[in-house]
Amino acid sequence: MNPKHNHFEVVIPSDYESGQAVVEQIMLDVAECGFSSRDLFGVRLAVDEAVTNAIKHGNRLSPDKTVRVLFSRNQSRIRIEVEDQGAGFHPEDVPDPTADENLDRPSGRGLLLMREFMTLIEYSPKGNQVVLEKHFSS
């Protein structure tokens, strides 16, 4: 295990290109953490969902707002924090996308995928910051 960084923080504008660049930057480190290919797939998906949500739903692509992304790693886990400058939301208000009546809704699956692929997902009380962790043993 020889990741390039133990910790970095970036602040990006609210555009998708910048979002993809930071996901790639994180995955360069994550790729060297010894995860299985399934877990690498899941972490990429979860980080992408978190960053895209911050840009799209949090900051609503506003050029006046930024997204702060923090990556850290220790011996037991990786941790990604994503914070936007939007109004926040209540994750419990998002309808269950796997319920029969919601199956054909085109949105609302990002949260489910983050929960499924990460060990831990926590939103701040305001709902504009999410913390994702993937533990090496899980």
Binding site: E49, R105, P106, R109
Partner: peptide, 17 residues
């Protein structure tokens, strides 16, 4: 295809409809 996000799933659902 190696990766797709939930937004891509949304497009597929709209396509199916």
């Amino acid at each position: 295809v190696e990766y797709l996000s939930s937004a891509a799933l949304g497009k597929l659902i709209t396509m199916d409809k």
